[in-house]
């Protein structure tokens, strides 16, 4: 569950980027976050990840106010979220298996658990046969699947994706979106920031639209449905 209560954000360098944002994404929901370039989508995601702090207002994650969370507790907050970016962010010197296992090492999973869990999520994203490949031997879509596998391998309660299909052709993008939908059907809350109009239209999910830092729409429907 992600809740913004009167959240505003001004970066130290400039004007207000998010103005008095209010929304609540329930457990198990699937929501898109859309808006023009520079409208503040990534900023909202950074606020959720607590990479940035709100200038005012409250952000509540899984029932906990994260506004005054101690820096030493941030890693534990992030373990409740899987994160996917446009540029995949894989480690080029590690193969697919190692890239996914890495996320488990980091949270100090046991070797036994890692051995069981990694092949499972790799087959879930359709990469069971590519475990030994390195990122540069994979297509963009496959790389994003690895990133997805890494994001869900620790069973987070929510998945946050910032333009996950930005670097992919429409067909591959749609495959990734179907995967996100599958993950959502298993009970994970999913929030996707995107520009991909056709995908948003086709998915027919909740859409939170932001423009110049203001949330101007929050309802189910397509990309351009009337406000």
């Amino acid at each position: 569950m992600i809740e913004f209560r009167n959240v505003s954000k001004t970066y130290s360098t400039g004007s207000e980027v998010i103005h008095n944002a209010n929304f609540k994404i329930e457990k198990g929901e699937f929501a898109f976050l859309i808006g023009a370039s520079g409208s503040g989508k990534s900023t909202i995601i950074k606020l959720i990840l607590k990479e940035e702090n709100p200038t005012s207002g409250k952000i509540i994650i899984n029932g906990k106010d994260t506004t005054n969370l101690k820096p030493s507790k941030i890693p534990y907050l992030r373990r409740s979220m899987g994160i996917v970016f446009q540029d995949f962010r894989l480690l080029p010197d590690r193969n697919v298996y190692e890239n996914v296992a890495f996320a488990m090492h980091v949270v100090k999973a046991t070797p036994r658990h890692i051995k069981r869990q990694v092949p499972m999520v790799l087959s879930q994203v359709g990469l069971a046969d590519k475990a030994k490949k390195f990122p540069n031997e994979l297509s963009g879509g496959e790389q994003q699947r690895v990133a997805l596998a890494r994001a869900i391998v620790n069973n987070p309660s929510m998945l946050i994706a910032d333009e996950p299909t930005g670097n992919l052709d429409p067909n591959t993008a749609w495959d990734i979106m179907e995967l996100l939908n599958e993950i959502n059907l298993r009970g994970t809350t999913v929030l996707v920031a995107t520009h991909a109009k056709d995908i948003v239209d086709r998915m027919n999910k909740r859409v939170i639209q932001i423009d110049g830092g203001n949330i101007i729409r929050d309802k189910k429907g397509g990309y351009d449905s009337e406000i």
Binding site: R89, A103, V106, V107
Partner: peptide, 16 residues
């Protein structure tokens, strides 16, 4: 730095 930023996103503690 790339590895470190990924570690941070997947919830590695500072000590780790």
């Amino acid at each position: 730095r790339r590895e470190i930023s990924i570690m941070k996103y997947v919830g590695a503690t500072n000590g780790f």
